[in-house]
Design a protein around this nucleic acid. Structure first.
Length: 480
RNA sequence: UGCGGUGUAGCCCAAUGGUAAGGCGGCUCCCUGUUAAGGAGACGAUUGCAGGUUCGAAUCCUGCCACCGCAGCCA
């Protein structure tokens, strides 16, 4: 086992008949002929397609192992690549030796040669990457991550690692998970006593806890955004981006939310909201173009089996400019229709999902950017417009997924920032270092956050965000 | 967290108070350069859990648990 194995993707694409190769992978299905040979569909994850392996009965060990070559079992096979008489593949492998690495009891192996519901597959997240759909998702996700780095690197952005554990509260981004070692000290363990007793004992002990005794000497949390820290580097080194996990302790139970997800956050100095919106549009289009380019087979699969309109939607996005309208115009459009809304909108309200969906799916039928939101519904750090009512915020909305990017030009004027901190009821002392960036050499700057998993929903046509991340974390779920 | 829905065989599901049905998978056999292979057969279920109503409960009632959808929070 020296790793001298060919990948199926390469063999199918450019393998030459007559060459001797070794492959290793997992069996998708086996078809036997009693005349004395078997077809094995072998998948090694390198691509959607399987390699068809033909094993004649005179291959050493054939009779011993073939019965155990079941769906899910693992094999190494050596043989000669041949032109395939069958119509469905250019080449196939004529085996000369076969080694069964691991069996998979057909009775108990959960994956069958048939369609499974995504709900069921979520319960076996350790096996679901062996399916066509989740293999394709993993490859496209990988492609997107590469594309993201490539997009920024070729534009001179610096990749900055912002902290996952933080003591700064990026206001407005939601509930945070507390990071503490204080509980390690507690003697009560839930299994030891009955629930009522333990929680009583627990709460009496909890009441004596003090954050100053904690590991960091103050309350620490998992990050909800790397933006504030990214601003530090952006206002020192030029354009930067962060790309990492983000955590929200919201008890949200939807197909679009995760407690742990991946976010990309570019931050650009000497940049206003127009530049920010332009970057967001170029960014999304580049990711789409790369995925269509580099994962053509997987994307074709999504279009055929998951969502019939995916390719059409993506191509439509590439061909059109994103529609840009102000929040005020958006409200006008929404109130001008005679449609009945569950939540009627008046200027100053948050746009509801039904409104955003109407705008992007029905009114414009393409991605769009809504900008200049009321300052009363947006966080303290966004740049205040001269009208005194709005801030330079923008949301990118796409059909079927909704908000995929949220961003803004940042408030770089210290006096205005202080006013906003006060308006939002925040203690400016807590933001001393953030204020310093405005005290010393402040510059206009802007940035946004893209939810990686939401981008994947758009690309793949998958409907539930839990199915585009390998190990989804949602309320009551962290099994794998 | 709120509202709504659903829990029946490994999977997808039918059965609205009266013998728990069908399909797929797996298993056995037959056929076959096959490829979502084809044909035949046998097997497979304490109907989510705990109570209750009833001669009788998958079905009705109560509680709990789990999952799904929609909404809010946002990416």
């Amino acid at each position: 086992m020296s790793g001298q194995f060919s990948r199926v993707a390469a063999l199918l694409l450019e393998g030459q008949p007559g060459t001797s190769v070794s492959v290793s992978g997992w069996v998708r299905t086996r078809r036997d002929s009693k005349q004395g040979f078997s077809f094995i569909e072998l998948n090694d994850g390198s691509c959607m397609a399987n390699l068809q392996v033909v094993v004649d009965a005179d291959v050493p060990g054939y009779a011993d192992v073939i019965h155990d070559v079941t769906t899910g079992s693992s094999l190494s096979i050596t043989g000669e690549l041949k032109e395939s008489p069958g119509a469905k593949q250019r080449v196939e492998l004529q085996a000369s030796s076969i080694e069964l690495l691991g069996t998979a009891d057909a009775e108990s192996y959960p994956l069958q040669k048939k369609r499974h519901s995504f709900e069921f597959l979520r319960e076996i997240a350790h096996l679901r990457p062996r399916t066509n759909t989740f293999g394709a998702i993993a490859r496209v996700r990988n492609c997107v991550c590469y594309s993201i780095h490539n997009f920024f690197q070729t534009r001179g952005f610096l990749n900055v690692q912002t902290p996952i554990i933080t003591t700064s509260d990026c206001e407005g981004a939601g509930e945070m998970f507390t990071v503490t070692t204080l509980l390690n000290e507690l003697r009560v363990e839930s299994g030891e006593s009955r629930a009522g007793e333990s929680s009583e004992a627990l709460s009496s002990q909890l009441s004596t806890l003090n954050w100053t005794d904690d590991f960091f000497g103050k309350r620490a949390s998992l990050t909800v955004s790397g933006q504030l820290e990214a601003e530090i580097y952006a206002t020192s080194l030029g354009p930067v981006y962060t790309f990492g996990p983000t955590f929200r302790a919201e008890n949200s139970n939807t197909a679009r939310h995760l407690a742990e997800f991946w976010m990309v956050e570019p931050e650009m100095p000497f940049c206003d909201l127009d530049g920010d919106m332009q970057l967001a549009e170029d960014f999304i289009k580049t990711i789409i173009r790369d995925a269509l380019d580099q994962c053509a087979d997987d994307m074709e699969f999504f279009n055929q089996r998951i969502e019939k309109t995916v390719l059409e939607t993506l191509n439509n996005i590439l061909e059109h400019e994103f529609k840009r309208i102000s929040y005020t115009e958006a409200v006008d459009i929404i109130t001008a229709t005679d449609r009945k809304w569950e939540y009627p909108v008046t200027w100053g309200d948050n746009l509801q999902a039904e409104h955003e969906r109407y705008l992007t799916e029905e009114h414009f039928k393409q991605p769009m950017i809504v900008f200049d939101y009321p300052r009363s519904i947006k966080p303290f750090y966004m740049y205040c417009n001269d009208d005194g009512k709005t801030v330079r915020a923008m949301d990118v909305l796409v059909p079927r997924v909704g908000e995929i990017i949220g961003g803004s030009q940042r408030e770089h004027r210290l006096d205005v920032l202080d006013t906003r901190l006060q308006e939002c009821g925040l203690d400016s002392e807590e933001y001393w270092w953030y204020r310093d960036l405005r005290r010393y050499g402040t510059v206009p700057h802007a940035g946004f956050g893209l939810g990686l998993e939401r981008m994947l929903l758009l690309l793949t046509g998958m409907q539930n965000i839990r199915d585009v991340i390998p190990f989804p974390r949602t309320p009551k779920h962290a099994e794998f």
